[in-house]
Design a protein around this nucleic acid. Structure first.
Lengths: 194, 194
DNA sequence: CGTCTATTTGAATGTACTCAAAAGCGGTGG
DNA sequence: CCACCGCTTTTGAGTACATTCAAATAGACG
C-alpha cells in the first residue's frame, strides 16, 4: 500500500514520529474503484473518510427533479466524505462516485476517533483541513450569490487547472451551478468572443 | 462578565474542569456594540473569534456592484469570525456589524492557539463546531442550487424561527440569495395564496 | 464496431433582477 | 412624547440570464 502521498498530505500541518506514522497507516484500508463505481450512495450511512491516491471522486446530490448537483471533487491528494452522515451517523444524501479508475485509502470513523484520543496531532490536522474546507465553501457560496456563471467558470479554471481537461463538462456545469446546456452555450460564446 | 452562556456552549461537546474554565474565561474580553456598529470591516485582518451573549451580529460581503450578501448571522449563543482572515491573517472581505445592541465575548487568535496547546479539549471543541459549520454551509450551497427562492425562505423560517421577527427582511433576502424587492413580492404572493 | 453517454443546438419560457418611485416604519433628537 | 428624518419595504414596468424540453450530433468505452 502506497502511503507516501497521505503522509505527505498530513505533514503539511503536523509532524509525525515514525511510530505515529506506522500506527496511522496500520489503520488504513486501500480500495480501488472502477469508472462509475460508487463509494457511497444516497440513503447510506457514511462510515469512512476517503483519501484519493489516483483518479478522481465526485460527490453529488440528486434533487427532487432528478437533477444532479456536484458538491465536491476529490482528485489526487484530496479527502472526501459525506460529512453530514459521517458526523451524525445518519443516512446521508450524497453520492460518491469514481469519475475514472480511482485508488483510495479509507479511514473508518471509529479509527479516526481512536486516533484523536491516541495522537492528538491528528485532531489538529483534521481541525485545520476542516477549517480550510469551511473557508472554501463560504467563498463558493458568496461566489454563487455575487458572480455570473461565466465568472464562476473562470474561477473554477483558475482553481482546478488540471481538472478542466479531465472532467466531463456536465459535472463542471453542475458544480458551478448551471445546467450542462447553458455551460455549452456559454463556452461557445466565450470562444467566439476571443 | 457573564461567562455562563459560553461555558454552557462549550460543555455541549467537552467537559471542562473548574481550573480549565477559569483559565479559559481569563482569556476572554467582553465588548458591547451599538446598533449598526462594526466589529470588523472589509480589508481588515480578523484577530478575534466572537461569541454573542445578547443581540445579533450579521456577517456580509459587498460585491463589485455594491450589493450586500449575508454570509451568516450570529444570534445569542453563536460564534462569528471572518474565518478566511482569521486563519490566514490576511485582510478579509467580511463586514461584521451589530443588527441591534449586542454584547459579545472575544477570544484572540493568539489566545485560541495557546488554548489548543494547553488544553487540547479546546482543539476538540473547535474541531467539532467547525465540522458542524461546514455541514451547514454544504447544505446551504446545495439548497441554493436545487431549491426555489420560496423553498429557501421556508427553510430559513424553520431553521431560525426566532430570527424571522427580529431581522430586517432585506437581510433575510440577501441571506437566502434574492434581492429585497424580490422577497417582498414573494411574501406578498405567499400571503395571497394562503 | 456498436452502444451508451456527453455535448451541442434550437425555440419557448420563467424566474429573478434592475431601476425608479412611492409608501411605511422606527429610531433618534428635540 | 412627539415629530421628523432616514432607512426599509412595497409596487410597477421592462429586461436579462438561465432553464426546460426536444432533437441532432459527437465522442468514448468496452
Amino acid at each position: 500500500m502506497s502511503t507516501d502521498l497521505i503522509l505527505q498530505n498530513i505533514s503539511r500541518y503536523v509532524n509525525l514520529s515514525p511510530d505515529e506514522k506506522a500506527y496511522f497507516t496500520s489503520l488504513l484500508q486501500s480500495r480501488s474503484l472502477k469508472r462509475k463505481e460508487f463509494l457511497l450512495e444516497d440513503g447510506q450511512i457514511c462510515k469512512y473518510s476517503a483519501f484519493t491516491l489516483s483518479g478522481c471522486l465526485r460527490g453529488y446530490t440528486v434533487d427532487e427533479n432528478g437533477l444532479e448537483h456536484v458538491l465536491s471533487f476529490a482528485p489526487q491528494g484530496w479527502w472526501m466524505a459525506d460529512m453530514y452522515s459521517l458526523i451524525s451517523q445518519k443516512p446521508g444524501t450524497l453520492n460518491i462516485e469514481a469519475i475514472e479508475k480511482t485508488d483510495i485509502l479509507l479511514l473508518s470513523k471509529a479509527d479516526q476517533e481512536k486516533l484523536y484520543e491516541q495522537v492528538p496531532k491528528f485532531e489538529r490536522f483534521f481541525r485545520i483541513i476542516t477549517e480550510n474546507s469551511l473557508v472554501a465553501y463560504q467563498q463558493r457560496l458568496m461566489d454563487n450569490l455575487s458572480l455570473t456563471a461565466e465568472e464562476r467558470y473562470l474561477n473554477f479554471c483558475k482553481r482546478y487547472p488540471t481538472l478542466i481537461h479531465t472532467l466531463p463538462k456536465k459535472d463542471i456545469a453542475t458544480y458551478i451551478g448551471v445546467t450542462p446546456e447553458f455551460l455549452s452555450r456559454m463556452l461557445g460564446k466565450m470562444l467566439r468572443n476571443s
